[in-house]
Design a protein around this nucleic acid. Structure first.
Lengths: 173, 173
DNA sequence: GCTGAAGACTTCAAAGCTAAACTTAGGAGC
DNA sequence: GCTCCTAAGTTTAGCTTTGAAGTCTTCAGC
């Protein structure tokens, strides 16, 4: 017997359109066009992170660990970075980085060594296992991403990329 | 004396272009157009969350609490939902929801009552304080969002919104 | 109207994060 | 060549989230 009086809301998440309509009712000054973009960005990102999480889980790592592997690969050969730089790039505190590296060293995804040239510094390096995990994750991720974008033509993808990049420039400057 | 040997990477985060170039070097099968979209989405979202966090902090609440207020307002009058539905919408476990509501009740942003019609259920309701906080946060957020989009014409905003919505449809179906 | 099962939270223990204090190495000024 | 200062990581304590177990209501079958 579902919900005899209407007091309890349905469990279903509102659609994007419903969400924007509700915001407009509750907040008169809202620009629906802006809200559509912002809300879609937020909702898309949440779904994507869930999808990535499912994929990395099948490889036995977490999204958090994948982020570290990404940063190290991005640094290029010889795949080394300091914990501080890693923390900055991932938006973590140095303390969190220390703990995360602890775990990843235990799982042999990365190595941690003291920099002999400057013994205050530490160097985090990618292991072969770590690099392979990144490659495997990348394989899964690109499949998913191609799937996500399958309804957009090449031209539309170009436009979308260009528009997003312009937003990013504004917010990263 | 900065960095006599080149072993330590610069602290600066790579730009989007550098990031894509690096991925292409390391992963041959990469479609740079897809990667541009996906990476821009991720980076945009991170920046936006940081910005929102700064704003909600000025109001004395956290982004997490703001999410709850949003969901309740979205539900419409009389601004009530069960913890389970809230948890589903925010992508949290019921346990996390219980704790989050504890805190928000203590801060008088929401109320928690047992549903007399069905005593298994609990009803979380928005207080006037909570509703006002949401309005204040919305004011700040829309300012920021208008700022974020200022370089895009109305037409471009329409195109961006439409493309993002199409992606969302695919991933939310 | 009892009994068993399902549903909706809550409680508890453990993982991961943050902020702040602490440790240690390198460099500047006297 | 000491002393002070700064920079890079680590440690510690406390908070938020998760997963699993527990509690309490409701409902279905007998």
């Amino acid at each position: 017997m579902p919900d005899s009086d209407g007091t309890t809301a349905p469990a279903n998440e509102p659609t994007l359109d419903e969400q924007i309509a509700a915001y407009q009712r509750e907040f008169a000054d809202l620009d629906p066009q802006v809200e559509q973009i912002v809300s879609a960005l937020g909702r898309l990102n949440r779904r994507m992170n869930v999808a990535y999480g499912r994929q990395t889980a099948t490889l036995g790592i977490s999204n958090a660990e994948w982020e570290v592997l990404k940063a190290l690969v991005l640094a290029g050969q010889p795949y080394r970075m300091g914990p501080g730089d890693l923390a900055k790039q991932l938006g973590l505190t140095p303390a969190a980085m220390t703990h995360r590296i602890d775990r990843m060293v235990a799982e042999e995804l990365v190595t941690r060594d003291r920099d002999e040239a400057n013994r205050v510094r530490v160097i985090v390096g990618l292991t072969d296992t770590g690099r392979q995990k990144w490659l495997d994750a990348m394989e899964l991720a690109t499949d998913f991403e191609e799937d996500l974008l399958q309804d957009l033509s090449t031209k539309e993808r170009g436009i979308l990329g260009e528009l997003l990049t312009r937003l990013l420039v504004r917010v990263e400057s």
